[in-house]
Simulated scan of single mutants.
Amino acid sequence: MTESAVVVGLRASGRPAFSRGHLAGRFGLVGEDLFPRGARGRQARQTWPIEEEPGAGRPVAVGDTRPSPEERRPLVAAGHAHGATVLAHWFPPDPAGSPRREALRAARARVPDAGVRATSGRPRRPTRAAGFDAVHAVRRDGRGGREIHPTA
Rank of each mutant, 00 (worst) to 15 (best):
A129W: 02
G144V: 03
A103F: 07
P93H: 03
G115Q: 12
A134F: 04
P93G: 02
L29H: 07
E53K: 11
G97D: 09
P67G: 02
E102K: 10
P92Y: 02
P16R: 07
A106D: 15
E102H: 09
R140D: 15
R105N: 08
T127G: 03
L104C: 08
P112F: 00
S19T: 13
R124H: 04
A39Y: 05
T65E: 12
R40C: 05
V6R: 06
A78V: 04
A129F: 02
R20V: 11
T119P: 01
S120K: 06
A12P: 10
S68D: 14
E70A: 15
L34A: 15
R11I: 11
A88S: 00
A56K: 14
G145M: 07
R125A: 03
A137P: 07
Q46K: 13
P74Y: 05
R37V: 12
F27V: 03
T2V: 14
G25I: 00
R66H: 13
A129E: 11
E102F: 08
A134W: 05
A107N: 01
G55W: 00
F35I: 03
A12V: 08
H82G: 11
P150Y: 06
G97R: 07
R105H: 09
P67C: 03
A109K: 14
L104F: 01
F18C: 00
H80E: 11
A152N: 12
P99E: 02
G14I: 08
G131I: 00
Q46C: 14
A5K: 13
R146S: 11
R20P: 07
E32W: 10
R42H: 08
P112T: 01
P123T: 11
P112G: 03
G14D: 10
T119A: 11
R45P: 06
E70R: 15
R143I: 04
P112C: 02
P54Q: 04
R125Q: 02
P126M: 12
S68Q: 13
R108Y: 08
E3Y: 07
A12S: 14
G144S: 06
P150T: 11
W48H: 09
D133C: 09
P16A: 07
G63F: 01
R72N: 01
L23Y: 08
R105A: 06
A114G: 08
P36H: 09
W90N: 13
D133M: 08
R37Y: 05
R42D: 08
S98C: 15
A78Q: 05
R101M: 07
R143Q: 15
F35P: 06
R66V: 10
D141C: 09
R128K: 11
G21K: 06
G63V: 03
P36S: 12
E51M: 10
R58Y: 12
H22E: 05
